[in-house]
């Protein structure tokens, strides 16, 4: 059962990438909110509970990993999908983060839209199983 009110947060300082992810998630009918800075993202998080958050590793005002840990702290229910052009799948930092449950999954740029949707769906359904 899909809750029509699934909220998804996209954090990337590249507005075009926020646009791309938003477009990709459109078929899933989530409510997608984009933030181009960590500060903006934290503001949104304080206002609403997001089921899923796409977080870019390189944001101009904060390191993405730092932001991820802040999100986990403030909103433990939010599933974090890390996006990065900087890291790759087997990067030690990524393996470590996954192991520590800092984030749920990792998405390397450039990404497949189907994968974006699939990761989002997995994250959304996680709590419901």
């Amino acid at each position: 059962m899909i809750d029509a009110k699934v909220h998804v947060l996209v954090v990337d300082d590249e507005p075009d990438l926020c646009w791309a992810i938003t477009q990709a998630l459109r078929p899933l009918a989530y409510i997608v909110k984009s933030a181009t800075s960590a500060a903006q993202a934290l503001t949104y998080l304080s206002q609403h509970t997001y089921k899923v958050a796409f977080v870019d590793v390189k944001i101009q005002d904060m390191d993405g990993l730092k932001l991820a840990s802040l999100i986990r702290q403030r909103s433990p229910a939010t599933r974090i999908i890390l996006i990065s052009g900087f890291y790759y799948q087997e990067d030690s930092a990524i393996i470590e983060g996954l192991k520590n449950n800092l984030f749920t999954s990792f998405l390397a740029k450039p990404f497949n839209l189907a994968e974006v949707r699939s990761l989002a769906q997995q994250a959304v359904s996680f709590g419901e199983l």
Partner: peptide, 18 residues
């Protein structure tokens, strides 16, 4: 380079897919 290039690449890729 990775970050700087993969961002535009990511945009290009996503745009094409959309």
């Amino acid at each position: 380079i990775a970050h700087e290039l993969r961002n535009p690449l990511g945009i290009i890729s996503a745009s094409a897919q959309l």
